[in-house]
Amino acid sequence: MAEIAIILLNMASYVLVLVLVALGLVVVFGMMRVINMAHGELFMLGAYTVVWLQAAGAPFWLAVAAAPVVVGAVGLVIEAALIRHIYRRPLDTILATWGLSIALKQAVVLIWGPASHSVAAPMAAAIGVGDVTYPVYRLLLMAVAVAIIAAVFWIFLRTDFGLVARAVIARPDTAAALGIDTRRIYRASFVIGTALAGLAGALVAPLISVDPQMGLGYLIPAFISIMVGGAGPLAGVLVGGGLVGGTNNLATVWLSPVVAQIVVFLLAIVIIRLRPQGLLGGRDGA
């Protein structure tokens, strides 16, 4: 019983982080058709922001709060310098952001070196219920992740900004004709997407090794989650992230992590092939 509880808790925390990463990706992809291959590196920058600020003596939670701001600012620069020139060439965004990802990775190597850093968890305590003990930080991480995911859904589904943003997704030209500044909406969405990546990176920094290659390990699963769930509706990320992350984590109970990942990727590719619009996508998804 205790083992099952821990397996489920680990699964939930992995799924929530994956959903957080994928959510940032889908805001950018679903909205602007921009495939951001540098999303994993923005995630990495979030983690390095914590490394950097903690070394400067800042408390952990302040560093976590600063990460989305720092990475969002980087996102603003990227949008202004790179992305806005290629909005009309979606396939070129893959290549250009790939170049960006190489450059960001190497910039981090130049500043912090290629070796991995570790971030001290803000609390080492473990909480016990019956014979199950679990680190408090992981529980907090889950709570924060759920709150952020809910906030993003609230922004896009309940606020005026969200309404305008969804109008721009559905009919960019009509929205522009109605006087909506689509460029400003694109820019805001891109910054939201990058800030989410930064926040996700900062939150998981204490749990994983922080190194320049860490982004890739989340980028491919995040993309696959989006494609499995469907890039159209925002809720597709929950389904995709839940399925990909959950299956992957659950499979490691019986299989080695590498084999588990291979199996999950293969299953996901079959689903993507059979339903290119994603499980939740109604209309044309690709």
Binding site: P90, L91, I220, I224, M227, F265, I272, R273, P276
Partner: peptide, 17 residues
Amino acid sequence: GLSGAYLAIVTLAIAYI
């Protein structure tokens, strides 16, 4: 069939596998 970005990501995943 798959094309464009979807094809790119799927082929990337297959190479990774």
